[in-house]
């Protein structure tokens, strides 16, 4: 299980970095989404994954070695929510920029960089 998830994390990071390096703003945003999902998986993975046992069982205390650690789940949930907010914002920004300039090309984003 861990091996598969580790490979998946790696693949997501690779895809994310590849997409970040493209010239289109939309692809850049897709890259950000990949990276943020890869990071969430990484947090999950690094904090230890237990197969088939939830964090809480019917409100009763169980043997702590058998149940999953709830903290990384809470962390990842928070991170996903923050990621959602950021992605909404980036998409809105991209849309506004596209409306204003009609381009999706990152190479056009240097009008303000002349000394």
């Amino acid at each position: 299980m861990e091996i598969i998830l580790a490979i998946l994390t790696g693949v997501l990071y690779t895809a994310g970095v590849y997409m970040l390096l493209r010239r289109s703003i939309l692809k850049f945003i897709i890259g950000i989404i990949f990276l943020s999902n890869a990071t969430n998986l990484l947090v999950f993975l690094a904090a230890g994954i237990v197969q088939g046992s939830p964090a809480f069982v019917d409100g009763k205390a169980a043997d702590s070695s058998l149940i999953a650690d709830p903290l990384p789940q809470a962390l990842v949930l928070t991170a996903i929510v923050i990621g959602l907010g950021i992605i909404v914002f980036t998409l809105a920004l991209k849309y506004k920029y596209f409306q204003l300039t009609g381009t999706d090309d990152l190479d056009q984003v240097k009008q303000t960089d002349k000394p």
């Binding site: 959602l84 907010g85 909404v88 998409l91 809105a92 849309y95």
Partner: peptide, 12 residues
């Protein structure tokens, strides 16, 4: 509130 605002922003 936040969900609805997000959707409105994305669906103008």
């Amino acid at each position: 509130g936040v969900t609805v605002i997000f959707l409105l922003v994305l669906n103008r």
